[in-house]
Design a protein around this nucleic acid. Sequence first.
DNA 1: GTAATCCCTACTAAATCTATAGGGTAATAT
DNA 2: ATATTACCCTATAGATTTAGTAGGGATTAC
Lengths: 136, 136
Amino acid sequence: MLSKKTKYGLKALAHLASLPNREPVQIAEISKQEQISQKFLESILLTLRRTGFLGSKKGKGGGYYLIKDAKDIQMTAVMRVLEGPIAMVPCVSLNFYEKCEDCPDEATCSVNKLMLKVRDANLEVYRNTTLQDLIS
Amino acid sequence: MLSKKTKYGLKALAHLASLPNREPVQIAEISKQEQISQKFLESILLTLRRTGFLGSKKGKGGGYYLIKDAKDIQMTAVMRVLEGPIAMVPCVSLNFYEKCEDCPDEATCSVNKLMLKVRDANLEVYRNTTLQDLIS
DNA sequence: GTAATCCCTACTAAATCTATAGGGTAATAT
DNA sequence: ATATTACCCTATAGATTTAGTAGGGATTAC
């Protein structure tokens, strides 16, 4: 299940990407238009700023704006930041690899086999999808 | 994240599929070999029996056994029973479709767009993978 | 200075996951 | 028959995660 955090984060990014320019947009504005709890959205946008997707401007007339072109923002990066590892088990994760305690041998593990395929399929999608592809 | 329920269920199915015949195997045996809490495994196997993957035999010499050939068991079916819907959001689910309350229009929703691709990629994997493919 | 706006930490209610407890029921070997 | 084995079923509880809420602090435009 996709978390609301990811869902809201994606919607916010798409919202910003669909604007003609990169003027700062206030949290309240996005929150209202996308029907998201303002305080929750606040923490999500903060995360997206810290991880390099957004810039922000304080004070009156401030808000958040995209730092890069929408076509240069891959879903792999967005999903990892918002949803966490793309792999469904740590033993097939590229960026967060961990051995399973209970699994004696990955090479013969049925779960590993299946989840490896799933990870590859998902990576393929996320790598080939940019923020730009989600708006239009 | 893959739930332990699914992980254990897959391991149990693979365990049964890797045996030369379809003699009943006791819960305790699977539990021990695959390092799974016996009581938890018990409830998982029960689910798999109720949903038509396993048969069981009571009394001495009893246990669980596969009802169908491993090559005839698609991962789509297994995953739906153990992990739930394959789609990450209900609005792109084939079997559990639900409209999002907060989303005015699916056709222009960025989350919908992305999750549709992800669902298709995952379905492709699960449809083309059988239990037989996981043992080798 | 003041109002607007983002920044940050801590806390909490609810849901979900991962079991565990404790028996009940059916089948089998003898 | 009876003891034994093993599956069948419900309820509950601890741990973790999710989805917020509360409350104030810092910065900027005017």
